[in-house]
Nucleic acid binder design. Structure first.
Lengths: 181, 181
DNA sequence: GTCTATAGGTCGATAGAC
DNA sequence: GTCTATCGACCTATAGAC
């Protein structure tokens, strides 16, 4: 990807993480990136195109996280994979916030649904694969769906201030223990 | 509450359920309610005031649902209480959508966080109380937090088109079985 | 309490120069 | 590729009549 486009998309993720998709004003992104609004239209056509590319960009960054996961046992790998969205680092919080916004936006924006569902499928698949490697006698797909869905819920409670990050991580660990022993 | 105000708030919930908080345009609500925009400003001052009252209104409606729950056994009561947000009726879908929007908005709007956290606490408390009555030997509060959080995640996957309602209900039942046997 | 009419502002998008 | 300048649509909010 051209450097300038990547620069714009990074600014877009920051703006979404700060103000939400409802705060995604093309003007704000151009200010954040230090360029003109016209340049954004030159690169992405319109606001919807920018939003779509931003979603893909967030997906790709999450995929990179995933590949970086490496652990001794499948069980440890599972914990890492699931707590990916529950870390108090700037980047993770930013990604998790933007990700939550895109899920919430997809409820009202049909164009976002298919890419969102696809990303969700991929994540569930990855988690299910690791669960199978733990040799636990469970329905790996159902467990993967429950655990990833739980993580999304925990993430939203954390980010909206209804739960501390520590508590979210603790509840996740408890759920993993309940699900695969 | 004056009838006219309630009529406006009901229209606001419908508009939020259809277009999200992002789509909450005062004009749309006035059209939905069949009145002028000026009348909304007369009753609620400004857009923020209208939003705040609408969210309180949503809270109150959810509380009414809860009181209507009645079942033979605590276990059955638990299932009813949790699947409250996962029903394909017009009203539930509307409420669930608006509720999800409230959670998503609270990430970026500090003024919404406290009322949201309070409602969440109440819901978790109700669920925990029912779990205790099932006599299951578990940490009732932790289980209640996990199950209610899961429901929120399932609701969002359902409403955003990443999961069917049937599947969401099935996964919830599986989770209840795992958690309290 | 409720309306019509409109001021005033914001924002997406484009034209045209460089 | 990138900018400045600006149009035009849309939206919140208010003034003033009834």
């Amino acid at each position: 990807m051209p450097e300038r486009q990547q620069q714009i998309l990074e600014a877009a993720v920051r703006v979404i993480a700060r103000n939400g998709v409802r705060g995604l004003r093309v003007e704000k992104i151009s200010a954040e990136a230090g360029i003109s609004t016209a340049l954004i239209y030159y690169h992405f056509g319109n606001r919807a195109g920018l939003l779509r590319h931003t979603l893909e960009f967030i997906n790709d960054r999450a995929a990179v996280y995933t590949q970086q996961v490496s652990a001794e046992t499948p069980r440890a790998e599972l914990e890492l994979l699931l707590s990916r969205e529950l870390q108090d680092s700037e980047t993770v919080r930013e990604n998790s916030t933007a990700w939550g916004e895109l899920r919430a936006s997809a409820v009202f924006d049909a164009a976002l649904r298919e890419p969102l569902a696809e990303s969700t499928r991929i994540w569930v698949g990855e988690v299910a694969e690791v669960i199978e490697r733990t040799k636990a006698k469970v329905d790996a797909v159902a467990v993967a769906e429950r655990l990833t869905t739980l993580v999304e819920g925990l993430s939203e409670r954390w980010l909206s201030g209804s739960m501390t990050l520590d508590r979210a991580q603790e509840l996740l660990k408890g759920a993993i223990a309940r699900e695969i022993g």
